[in-house]
Nucleic acid binder design. Structure first.
Lengths: 340, 340
DNA sequence: ATAAAATAAGTTACTGATAACACAGTATAA
DNA sequence: TTATACTGTGTTATCAGTAACTTATTTTAT
C-alpha cells in the first residue's frame, strides 16, 4: 500500500514519512545543506530514488522567486544562429534553457513573462535598437540580463563585434586588390550592426580618399527576406550605375541574392564584379564562386555572454557590467579579385 | 502609505483590501467567473490597474498544475523553420510559447522539464524516430502532445506530409523529361522523412521499370552539415558513375552542396545534370540556376498541429487522436530539363 | 406568503516547497 | 564543572494563488 495517494506525485512530506525524518530535513538534502548526518542524507536520497520523487518547480518558485532557468529572448527571430549554440552552455551550467521570440512591439510583454516565469537570467538577442537602454533596464524587472550586440549604456552588459573594424577589413581588402568604386547593399539601418557596417564602409572609403556609393539601403527586417533584399538592391544598383567593380553586401544571404541578380544580368563574379559578404554563413563557401566574407565567432560570443550572465547571477550585488568588443576575421575565397 | 510592503508586488489580498472585497472575489474576477456583480468587478479591475497588480505564475501553477504555456520541443534543432511560424499561433490562442532544443539522448529529460514547468501542451518537432511511440507517450507525463512529422502509433496525434507522393512528383517530373538514370543523394536514413523520401524514390523508379541508383547515403544529422553532405555525396557519385543525367537530393541545402561539387567538376546544371531538391527553402530560388524543388506548406502544418493540440487541451477526455497527411507540390524552376 | 432556487459574496483549507526559529544533544574551553 | 559554541532536527509560518464550502441576500415559483 502506497504511503501517498495514488495518481499524485510524492512530496517531500511523503519522502520524509517514508524515511522517518522531518520534511525540513528532506528539503535540506535537496538543497545540499551541509549540516545533515551522512547516514540521514543517504537514507533520504535512497527513499527519494525509490519513490521517484521530483521537486515541484511551482512550489520552489513560490518561495525562492527563482526557477533555475535562463531565457533566451530573440527579437525578430534571427535563427540563422544555431540554437544549440546558446542552449548548450546554459545546460552545462545546470540551468534549463528556454527560447522565446518577439517583435519590437512585444518585447515588453515578453520580458514581463520572463519575470512571471521567475527566470534567473535573460540573454537578449536584439539586433535592433528597439528601445532606449534605460527602458530596457526598467523592463527587465531586475533580472540579470546580458545583451548580445552593441548597446550604449554601460549599466548593461553587452558583447558586440567591432563592426567598424570588420568593415574596414572587407573594404580594405577590395581597395588593396585595386578597386576604387565600391558599391554597397544594405538593409534597414534600424539594425545596429547594419548601421555600423554602413558607417564603417563610408568611413573606410573616406580614409582612402574614395567616394562612397552607390549605396542601396533596403528595408529588410525578417531574415527570410534577406535574399530578396540583396536581389532587389543589385537590380536597383545596376539600373543606376554600372561603374562599380566591387560590391560590399551587408550579409551573406543578401550577397546570395545579389549574385543571382548579377547572373540574371549576364555579369560574372568575380570577373565583372567582386563581392564581399558578412557572417561567414555556411552557405558562403558553397556559393558559386565561394564567397569572400567576414567571419564572426558567434560561438565564442555566446559563451562569453553566458559567462558574464552567470557571474551576474552569482553576485548580483558586486557585479560590474562588462562591455566587450570582439574582433572579426576576413575569409578570402573566390568572389574577389583585382578589377579587369 | 501603501497597503502592502514596499518592494513587494501586490497580491490578490492587497487588491482585495483596497477594493473592500475578499481575496476570493478578486480571484473570481481574475478568472472571469460569471457570478460577480458588474460594479464589483469594475471596481476590482480598477484597483488592480491602479496598483499594477500582476498574477503570480508560481502560485497559480501550484494550485492549477498549469502554466498557460505551450512548449515547442525540437530534436536536433531544425531551425531552418521560422520560429515565428509556431510561436505565433500559440500566442494568438492566449498561451505563452517557449522553445527548447534537445538531442535524442536528452529528450526524456526535456520532457521531464516540460512536466515540471507544468506546460499545457507540447509540440514535438522530431524528425528522427528517436524512440518508440510507447515510450514517448509514457515520457510525456500525460501532457497533451502533438508530433510534427510522421509517427506510427495512433495513440499520438501527428501531422506529416505524404513523402512518397512528394518523391513521386519529383521523380515523375524527371522521368517525364526523359531521364532514365537518376541518382539520389540523401542523409542518414534514421530521419523519418529522409527514409520515406529514399523509399519513395526506389518505389517510383521501380514503377517505371527503371533501375534505381546510384545512391549516396550520407550521415548528416546537424542541419549545418547539410551542404557538406551534398557536396561529399556528389563527389562520391561522380567517382563511382557518370552515367546519370539527373539527380534527386534529399533537401535544398544538400542540393546546394551538390551543385557546388558539379561546378567544381566542370559540369553544368541543367545542361549536364538536372537536379530536384526538397523543401523549397528560400535559398532554392536564389541558386544559379534556380532550383526545381518540392514545396511543403509548413505554415499550414504548424497551424493544423496547434489546432489539434488546443482541441486536446480543451477536451482531454473526449479527444480522439488525429493522423493527418498533407500533400506537397512540385515547384519547377530552371535546374531541370530534358537530357541532352 | 412561503419555500425553493439562484446570486453574490465571504471563510477556511490546501497546494509543495523554503525560511526562520526553537530546541535538544554533543563537543570544546575556561 | 559550568559556560559556550556548534550540531542536527523538528515546528511553525509563509509564499500567492485556487477549490470547496458557507452564508446572506435576492429572486422566482407554488
Amino acid at each position: 500500500m502506497p504511503t501517498h495517494p495514488q495518481n499524485r506525485r510524492p512530496t517531500i512530506r511523503d519522502v520524509a514519512r517514508e524515511a522517518g525524518v522531518s520534511h525540513q530535513t528532506v528539503s535540506r538534502v535537496l538543497n545540499d545543506y551541509p549540516k545533515v548526518a551522512p547516514e540521514t542524507r543517504a537514507r533520504v536520497l535512497q527513499v527519494m530514488e525509490a519513490m521517484g520523487y521530483e521537486r515541484n518547480l511551482a512550489a520552489q518558485m513560490l518561495t525562492t522567486q527563482r526557477s533555475r532557468t535562463i531565457q533566451i529572448v530573440t527579437l525578430d527571430a534571427e535563427f540563422h544562429l544555431d540554437i544549440t549554440q546558446f542552449t548548450q552552455p546554459v545546460k552545462q551550467a545546470g540551468y534549463s534553457a528556454v527560447v522565446t521570440d518577439c517583435t519590437a512591439e512585444s518585447l515588453a510583454k515578453t520580458l514581463d513573462e520572463a519575470a512571471a516565469r521567475m527566470v534567473d537570467g535573460i540573454m537578449l538577442y536584439a539586433p535592433r535598437s528597439c528601445m532606449p537602454d534605460d527602458k530596457l533596464i526598467a523592463l527587465s524587472h531586475g533580472i540579470p540580463l546580458v545583451r548580445r550586440d552593441y548597446a550604449i549604456d554601460s549599466r548593461l552588459t553587452w558583447i558586440g563585434f567591432d563592426q567598424q573594424h570588420a568593415t574596414h577589413l572587407a573594404v580594405r581588402h577590395l581597395i588593396d586588390l585595386g578597386h576604387r568604386r565600391i558599391a554597397h547593399i544594405t538593409g534597414s539601418l534600424e539594425f545596429i550592426n547594419t548601421r555600423l557596417r554602413h558607417d564603417g564602409y563610408v568611413k573606410t572609403m573616406g580614409e582612402h580618399d574614395l567616394e562612397s556609393g552607390p549605396v542601396y539601403v533596403g528595408t529588410y527586417g525578417a531574415q527570410r527576406r534577406d535574399m530578396k533584399n540583396g536581389y532587389d538592391g543589385m537590380c536597383e544598383l545596376l539600373k543606376r550605375d554600372r561603374e562599380f567593380t566591387a560590391l560590399l553586401v551587408v550579409n551573406d544571404r543578401n550577397a546570395m541574392g545579389a549574385m543571382r541578380a548579377l547572373a540574371d544580368h549576364g555579369l560574372r563574379v568575380p570577373d565583372d564584379v567582386s563581392i564581399v559578404g558578412f557572417d561567414d554563413n555556411p552557405i558562403a563557401s558553397y556559393l558559386v564562386p565561394p564567397l569572400t566574407t567576414v567571419y564572426f565567432d558567434f560561438d565564442f560570443q555566446a559563451q562569453l555572454g553566458f559567462q558574464y550572465l552567470f557571474e551576474q547571477i552569482r553576485n548580483p550585488e558586486t557585479y560590474k557590467h562588462h562591455q566587450h568588443v570582439l574582433i572579426a576575421d576576413l575569409v578570402v575565397r573566390q568572389s574577389t579579385r583585382a578589377p579587369a
